[in-house]
Amino acid sequence: MTEPISQEWGVRIRTGCRVSFTLIDLNGETGRRNGMASMALRSPGLEAFVLPHHTIEVEADENGSAHLEAVTALMHRLREAWQGPPAKAVVRKGLPPHTGFGSGTTTAVAVGRAYAQFAGVSVGTAEIARAAGRAGTSGASANLIERGGFLVDGGHLNPDDFSDDPRRYLVPSRFAGGGKRPPVLVSAPFPAWPVLVVIPHGNQMHGEAEREFFARTLPIPAEEARRTAHAVLMNLATSVLEADYTAFCRAVNFLTYESHFKQKQIDMQSSQVKFLLEEARRGEEVDAIAMSSEGPLCYAFTRRPQAAVSWLSELRSAGIVQDFWFSGARNVPADIDWVPVLEDGRTVIA
Rank of each mutant, 00 (worst) to 15 (best):
G10K: 06
G10D: 08
I13H: 08
R14Y: 09
G16W: 06
V19D: 02
T22Q: 07
L23E: 14
N34W: 12
L41A: 03
A48R: 00
P52S: 10
T55V: 09
S65Y: 09
H67R: 06
L68P: 03
A70Q: 14
L74Y: 12
R77C: 14
E80S: 13
Q83K: 12
P86Q: 08
P86F: 11
P86E: 10
A87V: 08
A87K: 01
K88Y: 02
V91M: 10
K93W: 13
K93N: 13
P96S: 06
T99H: 04
G100W: 03
F101L: 00
F101G: 00
G102V: 03
G104Q: 07
A116H: 02
A116Y: 05
V121Q: 15
V123Y: 03
A131V: 10
A131M: 11
A132C: 13
A135H: 00
N143I: 05
E146A: 11
G148T: 10
G149W: 07
F150I: 02
G154W: 06
D160M: 10
D164R: 14
P166D: 02
P172V: 11
R174A: 15
F175V: 04
A176Y: 11
K180R: 15
R181N: 15
P183Q: 14
P183H: 14
V184Y: 06
S187V: 05
S187Q: 15
A188H: 09
P189A: 05
A192C: 12
P194D: 07
V197Q: 06
I199E: 01
I199R: 00
N203T: 07
R211P: 00
F214V: 02
A215M: 03
L218D: 03
P221Q: 08
R226G: 07
R227T: 04
A229F: 13
H230C: 12
A231K: 07
V232Y: 03
V232A: 00
L236K: 00
V240N: 00
A243S: 08
T246D: 14
A247D: 02
R250K: 15
N253G: 04
L255S: 07
T256G: 06
E258W: 08
F261C: 10
F261I: 15
K264D: 08
Q265G: 11
M268C: 12
Q269D: 06
Q269V: 00
S271M: 05
V273C: 03
K274S: 01
K274H: 01
F275Y: 13
L276S: 01
E279C: 14
R281K: 15
R281I: 06
R282T: 09
E284R: 08
E285F: 12
E285T: 13
D287T: 08
A288W: 06
A290T: 14
A290E: 14
E294V: 02
C298D: 02
A300I: 06
A300H: 12
T302K: 02
T302Y: 00
T302P: 00
R303T: 14
V309H: 08
L312W: 12
S313T: 13
L315C: 02
S317V: 10
I320N: 04
F326D: 03
G328V: 00
A334K: 04
D335H: 14
I336L: 09
D337A: 15
D337S: 15
W338S: 07
V339C: 09
P340A: 03
T347R: 14
